[in-house]
Amino acid sequence: MPKSNQQPTFATAFKKSLMSFLALSPMILAVIGLVALFQTYITPDMLSKFFGHGESLDILDGTVVGAISTGSGVIGYVVADGLKQQGVSDYALISFIMAWTTLSLTHLPAEASVFGIKFTAYRNILTFLCTLVIAYLSVTTLRLFL
């Protein structure tokens, strides 16, 4: 652990913070570029074609589709609303929303570069599994009480 008995000035702390950010700027630009490419070529219409294969498969479909999709959370909910109108199950919708907000294929290279391949692999595999379990548990819990 570095020794630091001297209190840095806020200007020094800010400069250090700015430098840390600038160091990661090529990666951030690359992620933004990749997200823009995905948003252009993978449309909501294409995503909706993945669903409708039964509740169990829909959980998996929702997770995979959510993971390969990109965009802000609001867009995720708008797409989910459209899927609901098409009769997609709650299992699929919740796994889709969960995967949309927690998993992203386009972020993987950046995450691995910052936090290491091991952490990125463990975290994303666990997140994938958690999404499947949460989607199942949430719908099951709700059905127990309502």
């Binding site: 400069k15 160091a23 700027s25 090529p26 990666m27 690359a30 570029g33 490419l37 950046a110």
Partner: peptide, 20 residues
């Protein structure tokens, strides 16, 4: 102040290649 060491340059080059 330490010298700025960029991360993700190869990733950025890959994305630029995709754009090309």
């Amino acid at each position: 102040m330490k010298k700025l060491k960029f991360k993700g340059l190869k990733f950025l080059l890959f994305v630029i290649a995709l754009f090309i």
